[in-house]
Amino acid sequence: MKWPLADRPVPERQVPLYNRFYLHAPKASHVDPTLVWGTEIDAEALQSFLRERNRAGRVVVTTAHALIRATALALAQFPDMNVRMVGRRIYAFRDVSIRMGFVHRGSGEIDLLLVRAADLKSLEEIALEIWQRLVQASRGAGSRDRDLARLRRVPSFWFRQVLRLYSFLDRRFRLPALGRLDELRGGCAMVNDLSFAGAPPMRSYKPTRFPDQSDSLNLTLGPMESKVVARSDQFMSTTVMPLFLRADHRLVDAYQVGRFLALVRDLLSHPERLDAPADQPAKPDAGAGSTIRP
């Protein structure tokens, strides 16, 4: 049994006033606390870094692994964003753990995995862990795969009742993670790498929120595309990737979201910074940094 959340909630006095407006808004106000911010990263720098890494490395490293590492390093710099709501209280996560969606080749469906303490793992360690899970999933041989297979056999009526009970408890109580299916609640950030071959250009993307309420942040990377930009008074062609962040105004405001996204963008556009050791965290650009502490 693991307890992903801190013992005590963030004191109400540390929660910014406007976040509290959203936090305590009555349902009748139809409040929408969802914030979405889209930007672009320099894909040439990232691709060049990955090519270099894959020339000499022990494990294949992809954009998804870089996105996980960048998100984890940024969350370590902004601990006030590594939080979730339980009821109307805000709890910090103990670790910087990141969940990722992937295509489960064994079942032909989307599944999720969780990389625990991703800020303390190197890019290669993250890649190795993910490949291990993907290989296991392609065979449908892992213990989680067996749990998912059992869950698929549950009749719709009982599936709904279980989900309702679980959601009720998860929304109201600081629960431990008991098994393989609910361990995904161990992190506040979910990442999607949608830069797969054949994906259409991404102009806008609003990720869904998982019913368990724990993924308060979502970062989605879209496919590469060429773009003409002006640099030093000259027009030139470059390759970019769109990056979208979905956040929750009950937990963070647009200023925090902007600075957090700027750091993730900076890390992906200067991917050599992803190699920063755990005791020397990535330096955010001027203006970034945390203001409140959970």
Partner: peptide, 23 residues
């Protein structure tokens, strides 16, 4: 890459581990 692993495992009876996914 995952599809290739699945194909090779099915076609040639091999078993991959995460560490085998090397460049």
């Amino acid at each position: 890459l995952t599809d290739l692993i699945l194909h090779i495992e099915g076609q040639y009876g091999m078993q991959f581990e995460g560490a085998d996914v090397s460049p």
